[in-house]
Design a protein around this nucleic acid. Sequence first.
DNA 1: CTGAAAGCGCTTACAG
DNA 2: CTGAAAGCGCTTACAG
Lengths: 307, 307
Amino acid sequence: MADETRANVLLAVQELNYKPNAVARSLMNARTKTLAIIFPNVSDGFSGTVLSGVEDAAHAQGFSIIVCKTGGGRERTLDYLQLLAEKRVDGIIFASEVLLPEYATFIQKLRIPLVVLSGESSDPSVPTLRCDDRLAAYTAAAYLISLGHERIGMIYGGAYGTPEQNGRVRGFEEAHRDHGLALTEGQVQLMDGFAFKDGQVGGQRLLATLTDLTAVFASSDELALGVMSAAHARGLQVPDDLSVMGFDDLPLAEMCLPPLTTVRQPLYGMGRRAASLLLDHLQGIQKLGENVVFPTTIVERQSVRRR
Amino acid sequence: MADETRANVLLAVQELNYKPNAVARSLMNARTKTLAIIFPNVSDGFSGTVLSGVEDAAHAQGFSIIVCKTGGGRERTLDYLQLLAEKRVDGIIFASEVLLPEYATFIQKLRIPLVVLSGESSDPSVPTLRCDDRLAAYTAAAYLISLGHERIGMIYGGAYGTPEQNGRVRGFEEAHRDHGLALTEGQVQLMDGFAFKDGQVGGQRLLATLTDLTAVFASSDELALGVMSAAHARGLQVPDDLSVMGFDDLPLAEMCLPPLTTVRQPLYGMGRRAASLLLDHLQGIQKLGENVVFPTTIVERQSVRRR
DNA sequence: CTGAAAGCGCTTACAG
DNA sequence: CTGAAAGCGCTTACAG
C-alpha cells in the first residue's frame, strides 16, 4: 500500500474516531477475550487481592475480567453461569467456593475452560489452585507448640463437610497428636464462615469455655481479628494474655494492632496464576489439568508470643 | 405454535445444550449489557464495597461488570478506555480517580454514558456521585472540638491540587475558624495517597512535631489505622492519649482495635446508585446529568474520647 | 400470523 | 498481492 494511502486511512480513522468493533470480531472467531471470576463475596480483602492478580495477568494479554458475586447461593451461581455461557466468556475462575457437581457439569457441557481457586472441587478433572491446607495448619500449630503453647484453640470457618475433609482442621489435630498433646471437647470451633463476626462468636465461645487457652489459631485473618475483639472484650491482652494467629495474610493483617502473625497464602500470585493458566490454555500453549499447590509461609508479626 | 412443537423445540434446546449467543445479539442491537468500572486499585475495602453495590444493581438487570485497574496511571487508563471502546461497553463508572480532561473527551467522543464516583471531575457535564467533603470534614472537626479537643491534627491523602480544592481540608479549617481555634504549621499533613503507609508516615510526622495534639482526623480509614500504628509506636494509647477519627467506614473500621470512630460514606449505596443511574439512562428512563450528593454520618465507636 | 431475507461489522478463504 | 464474497448468530423489517 502506498504510504500516502496509509496516511489517508489513518487520518480518516482519526477523524471518524473509528474503533474496531470487538463484538463483531468475537462473533467471527468465537473468542471474546474476556475471563470471568466468580466469588461468593467481592468486598473482602481475600477477593480483592486475588482479583488484583487476575486482573494484572489478564490485562497484560488484552483480556478483560467480568466479576460475579454469588453470595454463595446456588440460584445466583447458576444464573451467572447461564449468563456467562451466553456471553461466551473464554474461561472461568471459580474462586473460594464449593464447586458443586451441578456447576461443574454445567460448565463442562459448554466446554468453557474452568479453574478452581482456593475452593473445594468435587470434580478431580477440574484443575485446582490452592495451598496445602493440611500442611499449612500443621506447621502453624507446630509453630505455636514450639513457642511453648500447649492449650491452643482453633476456629475453622468452613463448617460444610466433615472435619476429615477440612485439611486445616486435620493438620491442626495431627500436629497435636505428633507432639503428644491431647485435644479436648470444644477446642476446635466450626463456624459457618470466615468472617469477622464468626471469629467474634467463635472466640467468645472458646474463651468462655476453655479458660486455660494460651493461644488461638484462626483459619482466616478476619476470624483472627474477631478473636482479638473477643479477647479484648474479656479484658485479655494480645499477645500477653493470649496469642492469636491468622491465615491468609490479607492487607489488614499488617494494619491491625497488634499486627497479626499469620500463615501467608500468596493470593495475588494465585490470582495471576489462575489467569495465566487459562490464558496459556486458550493459546494452546498447554493443556489444562494439572493442579497447582502454592507454598505458604508463616509471617511473624506481633500477635503471638513465646510462653 | 402447537404445544407439541414447542415441547420439541425445548427438548432440542436441552439436548443440544443450546445457549443464545449474546455476542451476536449485541452486534445487532448495539448493546452489550455490560458496564465497566475503573478503579486505581481493586484490592482495598473502598473499591470492594463500591464494586459490591455496582454488581448487585447491574446483575439485577442482567448486566455484567468489567473491572479495570489502572494503578492511577495515565497510560494504563487510556489503554483501558480504548479497550472498553472496542468492546462496546454500555456505560462506564469512573471511580475514585481524577477524571482528566483527556479521559473525558475520549469517552465523550464515543458517546459512552459516563459517571464519576467519588473522584474529581474536571468536566462539569459529567455527572458525579459523591459526598459533600467539605461539610463532612467540617462536621467531623466540629464533633472533635465539641468533645473538648483543641489541638487536632489532620492527614489528607490527595496531595494533588491546591488545598483550596480539597473539600475535606477546607471543612476542617473552617470548623477551626468558626470555633476560634488557630491552626499552626504542619497541623494538616498532605500525603500522596489514602493508604495505611501514608497514615503511618503522616502520623509519625504529626506526633513527632506537634506533641500537644489530643486528636487526629484522618481522611480515610486506612490513614487512620496508620495513625493508630504510629501512635502505638510512640507508646500512645488510643483513645486515652490520642483520639483518632477516620473517614469512609470501611469494613475494617469495625474490625480493628479499638474500633474506629469514623465518617461514614454509604459506599455500597453509592455503587448501586452509580450503576442504576447508568442503567436507567440506557433504558431511556432518565437523562444523565444530575450530580448526586450522598449524606455522611458520624459513626461513633471507640477510637475517640472526650477530653 | 408465518417465513425468508437483509444486515450488524468483522475475518477468512478464495478467485482474479 | 488485491479485492469481492461468504459467513459468524442473532434481530428486525418486510413480503406472502
